[in-house]
Nucleic acid binder design. Structure first.
Lengths: 340, 340
DNA sequence: ATTTAGCACTCAAGGTTTCAGAGTGCTAAC
DNA sequence: GTTAGCACTCTGAAACCTTGAGTGCTAAAT
């Protein structure tokens, strides 16, 4: 649908604009090596490209700037696989070669390297292992009427929840409760914990004292409390380096949306497998509609664990960013696969 | 050293400037209710105040603006105790009346209410209880060569650390190790943990197999790893609402410094007891020298637990902020005293 | 039938000028 | 000591040029 030459012109405009953030004129394009037409010819092509919606003018007599449709075409059809520099690969390499046995650290460092390499803002949705099962539950009484339950999963994840305990509940009874829970719940997939808590175990505990029941009620509530999603961001200030964000209002609204972690988490969680690019208006969140968001997923075997993403201006180094995300997501997958 | 009338004029200038962020002229001052002199007289007084360094002009024929010295004088001598509105008190009240048994939540909500009430950025340094003792230690083996140690303190704080284990180490031995550690370490103040780990216990364990020693070495390392300070911030975007920060560069440098949590934590930790106001250049961190930082401490009995702070422009509503911090720090202290 | 040179036209950005308004400092009168 | 009056200063906005980059169109060249 586009002629070879139109594509060539579009490519130059996009490549150049990504570098300079300045509108590109016909003369500038004509000077490019692999372009062998006069500015006038290029102007004709540009007029067509504009009519088709791939490029825009910032004002009547300005050079051209890629439109979102233009970027979309670029990402879908024109993007050449980017060969990362040795330096970039080295930085990623070094992130993973240090012995780390905590996923938090791995993810944090990944976020850091992502934002350092790209000068955009990196966002990582921490791993959610759906096959996770409960490995052990432990209850420690803190005061007369409070206690803390500690859960350890087979993936080594540790969580704790505070809950109330009737003052009449004895420490021995608490231990008994723990034993029962361990008996019944160890090995249960976390996703099934809820039904287990309400079914079998609840029934069984009714045989004991009312204190048992009350304690169990508190505990159940604490355990079911939705655990906050783990979102790791880095390079938040990088956005301000971009010339298109030299405007306080844009920054303000963008920062506000970044504080809404649950929205971001939802966005990343529903991003689907593999690399996905959302350009400008394609983004659901209004505050992000001047940005592009590129997401990639990492996984354990076949199961998708989490998402890594980069947020930057629509004028983004798409091909480089995609390469980086590709490399990093597979490195992350490797790491997790080596553990579980 | 300042005459009554000079003080009056200074007060009006500061009060007015805090509200409007605009330079104040002699005419505007003369119009104020409790001022009964002509603009000309006021101009004379202002010339004196300027010579003394309490106020400044933004240009030759502009109105006056308070200098940092002026704010300092205001904070030290002029500030009247601010009576918080019922609405404000209500918001604070509501923050604390909900039943909460996790200090994280309490602190998070406090940070939120602080920034909501003031439209500045709130920073809270989480409680560090120095009398904290170890209540229980638990080790759970995760794989052939890794395990996680879970520490619970008498204050109900839970931490966990991952560490390596020699593959030849048996699970039974691990349990033995846990028993020994619990025997020796329970009740030990966290601050003395380090010496205990190196002294007594280390010696004792030498009697056992080399696996024991190796495991212990890994564990020790993991336990001593400095736990990151807990810093809670809220209302980071509020800064952008202030007209004096309608400048990207300032915001950028301020945000960058806010990301350096250890520096901020150090700043707050060394802020000393009670309310402290640092105005502009008085701040150590260069990026904060357009800001004022007001800190207050909360405590458990006599012992200082942590710090709450507000960061805003030097043109800050000092008296209101001080009142809010006063109320909130005592409410926080109350809460913690009711627990421990 | 393309491609290109030429040319008139447009617009943004930056510099100058002008003007009004707010505010000052000084002087002289009260 | 206080105040009215006045000349002076400076900012900020508006109006106006000027320049340069870039366009679209037309007509000639290929």
């Amino acid at each position: 649908m586009l002629t070879e030459r139109q594509i060539q012109v579009l490519q130059v405009i996009i490549d150049e604009f990504i570098q300079t953030a300045q509108p590109i004129g016909s003369r500038a394009i004509a000077k490019k090596e692999d372009i062998s037409f006069s500015p006038a010819t290029i102007r004709n092509e540009m007029a067509d490209l504009e009519e088709l919606g791939f490029i825009e003018k910032t004002h009547t007599s300005s050079g051209r700037v890629p439109s979102e449709k233009g970027y979309r075409f670029y990402v879908d059809n024109l993007m050449s696989p980017f060969r990362l520099s040795n330096q970039d690969m080295g930085m990623i390499q070094r992130t993973f070669e240090r012995e780390m046995i905590e996923f938090e650290k791995v993810v944090q460092k990944s976020a850091r390297v992502l934002s350092d390499l790209t000068n955009y803002t990196s966002i990582i949705l921490g791993p959610e292992v759906f096959e996770t099962t409960l490995k052990q539950i432990q209850i420690i009484s803190l005061s007369e009427h409070t206690a803390v339950a500690i859960l350890v999963t087979n993936t080594g994840h540790v969580e704790h929840r505070y809950f109330n305990v009737p003052t009449t509940m004895q420490t021995v009874d608490l231990e008994k409760l723990v034993n029962i829970l361990n008996d019944r719940l160890v090995g249960v997939p976390i996703v099934h914990l809820q039904q287990k808590l309400y079914g079998e175990v609840a029934q069984m505990l009714q045989r004991y004292s009312s204190d048992f029941e009350a304690t169990y009620a508190y505990l159940k509530e604490a355990l079911l409390e939705k655990q906050p999603v783990k979102l790791y961001m880095d390079g938040k200030t990088n956005i301000m380096l971009q010339p298109e964000f030299h405007d306080i209002d844009k920054i303000q609204s963008l920062y506000s949306v970044m504080e809404k972690e649950d929205q971001i988490a939802h966005l990343l969680r529903t991003s689907g497998k593999g690399i996905k690019v959302s350009i400008g208006q394609e983004n659901e969140l209004a505050a992000m509609q001047d940005c592009s968001l590129i997401t990639a997923t990492y996984s354990l075997g076949d199961e998708q664990l989490g998402t890594i993403a980069l947020l930057g201006p629509t004028r983004m180094e798409y091909s480089r960013v995609v390469s980086i995300l590709n490399v990093l997501s597979s490195r992350l997958s490797q790491k997790f696969n080596s553990w579980y």
